[in-house]
Write a protein that binds this DNA or RNA. Structure first.
Ligand SMILES: Nc1ncnc2c1ncn2[C@@H]1O[C@H](COP(=O)(O)OP(=O)(O)OP(=O)(O)O)[C@@H](O)[C@H]1O
Length: 642
DNA sequence: TTGGACCGCCTTTTT
DNA sequence: GGCGGTCCAA
């Protein structure tokens, strides 16, 4: 391939600078992703073993599509390059080198709702209630603990800095954290954060592992480096100990994940971690027309911590972005739907159109309206398939069968039976001796599940409990996750119907889950994939092109569309009213809007409803987002729907 | 011990 | 409009 004609001069330099540490700093749409794709292709073409190249991205979806592009551009061997998120890579490494890393190979991955449930369970057991003071709720607890892990900060510092209102609970929180950590360790459960922490610890403590990993991965690339955290930076440093071959790309203006412990300071600190680092800047935007970039520059130039970059493009022609005020929410939805219909008639393919919003619930009304207009759409972000209750219910049986020490899943499965609550589950687990023994072999598991039938059960739930025991026994013997799910569903379907009014929808989800399960040979793989990728696993199939994309701005990162709508540009919604108090939070909202605006290639609309609607800023009439309010008409034209 | 009724608080972004 | 906590009947 002729790399020089496909890339501009600095991109070409980034692609051909192969050895040693490299920091690529670049604005939106300047070809960072393209550069990484070509860099992968180039490495493979010059004879580097594809398996020794590692591409770390923000979602697994991004990695898959980048590798597919590299393969189609150059060499099909690019498909064999290792790609994924830090978390999926950590999972793979911990499984592969379980002994060296000091974990059981059969460890369970807890997704965020499992983690919340576990913390809730422990909090209740430790009984912090009854106190006058308010104790943080489970979501907040997870966020606090996660922040400490990802920012490498002691709990006390996290409290002082981000949660001063709970600083007085430090003692109790530390106690809870300790209980949480030992509970997970005893049962070989790893949260998302643990995947990274345990990998880091293993790399630090075990020279051999460190050595073997740096040999396995000779060339490492990290996309979206501005949204990595310090823990991830440590991992990158340790994994490249033997060769320093690492290229990271990022844009400080697009840092939008600080709520998850990420910090764009990683970009600034990269040269300290890798003193030999070369710096390459990409400046020309290839995505958007200049009028769109003018608006983006305007949004970000108001930033109080002024970023020096200004985006420019050779596509100087184009209409300026438009700000449209609607009477109420539904008028906003109708405007978007009707405009999409017009575009469709003009021949714009639906996959070149997207609607973005700050929070996933903001699109509910639009979803109904698009339905009425017969416009197919797909939604990204928000509630995840794998985190809905019915999917977790069904999978909890597979988890128990795989790892009977997974008490969390026992609670979930047993409590599906009427008249069994927390107390009864605990009695059952005591009866089974779950906490004391190990159950690895099929034999041991079978006799365990048989013992379930001998539990002195009350008449009110005895029959159901025996059925459940039978289901568990059966699925231990079954190999394929598809067959196992069929067994589970025989028990679970009636329960589903009695519990949920909207069971037809949920039943369809379960059928979908079964279809997904067909792709897997073992329950362990299925469960890991579902946990590591709670939304994608369900959406991987059928990447058709005949639909409009609806997405949170966060999930739209790195993507681009010809025509873009950003809805709910009402102050209090975007920026979110919860982020306007703290300066740093507000700046992150601004960067978020910058990310949104720079997704558009040619047409960009912002809409906001004027009609009174509760929420956002209570008791105040809705006004347009402070980020757009004072932008001159020449840069952002205005229209009102009537 | 479970589960239903009631009340008050909070409401985001994701691996 | 949902979730978490509390109170009470069965
Ligand atoms: N040298 C080039 N010649 C032609 N088109 C290019 C070139 N570089 C990038 N592009 C195109 O510009 C668009 C933006 O590129 P890309 O997605 O790689 O940018 P990015 O820096 O990753 O963007 P962002 O950070 O905003 O997600 C893509 O459509 C890409 O194909």
């Amino acid at each position: 391939m002729d790399y020089e004609s496909e890339l501009n001069e600095s991109q070409y330099r980034a692609v051909t600078t192969i050895d040693g540490p490299l920091l690529i700093v670049a604005g939106a749409g300047t070809g960072k992703t393209r550069t990484l794709v070509y860099r992968v292709a180039r490495l493979v073409e010059t004879g580097v073993r594809p398996e020794s190249v590692l591409l770390l991205t923000f979602t697994r979806r991004a990695a898959t599509s980048m590798l597919a592009r590299a393969a189609s551009l150059a060499d099909s061997r690019c498909q064999r390059v290792s790609g994924g998120t830090f978390h999926s890579m950590a999972y793979a490494v911990l499984r592969k080198y379980a002994e060296l890393a000091g974990v059981e190979r059969s460890f369970t991955v807890l997704d965020s709702s499992d983690t919340e449930d576990l913390i809730d369970l422990l909090r209740r057991q430790m009984n912090f209630r009854g106190k006058e003071r308010r104790f943080p709720r489970k979501r907040t607890l997870c966020a606090i603990f996660s922040m400490a892990a990802n920012k490498l900060m002691p709990l006390g510092d996290v409290l002082k800095r981000y949660y001063p209102q709970f600083a007085r609970e430090k003692g109790d929180l530390e106690q809870l954290l300790n209980a949480f950590e030992s509970y997970k360790r005893e049962r070989q459960m790893l949260t998302y954060d643990d995947l990274l922490v345990r990998l880091r610890d293993a790399l630090e403590e075990n020279q051999e592992l460190c050595q073997r990993l740096s040999e396995q991965y000779r060339y490492i690339m990290v996309d979206e480096y501005q949204d990595t955290n310090r823990l991830q930076a440590q991992i990158v440093r340790l994994m490249t100990a033997a060769h320093d071959n690492v290229a990271v790309v990022g844009d400080e203006c697009q840092a939008i994940y600080s709520f998850r412990g990420a910090s764009f300071k990683n970009m600034l600190e990269f040269p300290e971690l890798f003193p030999k680092a070369q710096l390459i800047k990409l400046e020309e935007n290839f995505r958007s027309s200049q009028p769109i970039l003018n608006l983006a520059n305007e949004i970000i130039s108001d930033a109080s911590e002024s970023y020096a970059k200004r985006l420019f493009s050779r596509m100087t022609e184009g209409e300026p972005p438009m700000l449209v005020s609607a009477g109420d929410e539904n008028e906003q939805s109708r405007f978007v739907a009707e405009r999409i219909e017009e575009l469709r008639e003009e021949g714009v393919p639906l996959h070149e159109i997207a609607v973005l919003f700050r929070a996933s619930s903001h699109s509910f009304d639009l979803e109904i309206e698009l339905g009425k207009h017969g416009i197919p759409f797909r939604k990204f972000g928000g509630i995840k398939f794998a985190e809905s209750a019915h999917i977790k219910d069904a999978l909890s049986f597979l988890r128990v069968a795989l790892n009977p020490a997974d008490t969390l899943s026992w609670f979930r499965a047993l409590k599906l039976i009427d008249h069994i609550g927390d107390a009864t589950v605990q009695q059952i687990l005591d009866h089974l001796g779950i906490e004391r023994r190990e159950f690895r072999t099929v034999r041991a598991k079978e006799s365990l599940f048989n013992r379930l039938k001998q539990f002195p059960a009350r008449a009110s739930y005895k029959d159901q409990l025996i059925k459940l025991a039978h289901v568990l026994r059966t699925i231990v013997e079954q190999k394929s996750p598809h067959a196992q799910l069929s067994t589970v569903l025989r028990l679970y379907r009636p329960i589903l119907k009695s519990r949920y009014d909207d069971y037809p929808r949920r039943q369809r989800d379960l059928e979908h889950l079964q279809a997904i399960a067909k792709r897997y040979k073992s329950a362990a793989e299925l469960l890991a994939d579902v946990a590591l990728d709670p939304s994608d696993a369900a959406q991987r199939d059928g990447r058709g092109s005949g639909y409009v994309t609806l997405s949170t701005v966060h999930s739209a990162k790195g993507l681009e569309w010809n025509t873009l709508f950003v809805i709910w540009m009402t102050d209090g919604w975007f920026p979110s009213s919860r982020s306007v108090e703290e300066f740093e939070d507000l700046e992150e909202e601004r960067r978020l809007l910058y990310v949104a605006a720079t997704r558009a290639k040619q047409h960009l609309y912002f809409t906001y409803p004027l009609g009174a609607y509760r929420g956002g800023m209570p008791d105040a009439p809705p006004v347009v987002s402070r980020f757009l309010e004072f932008i001159p008409d020449t840069i952002l034209s205005r229209a009102t729907l009537m």
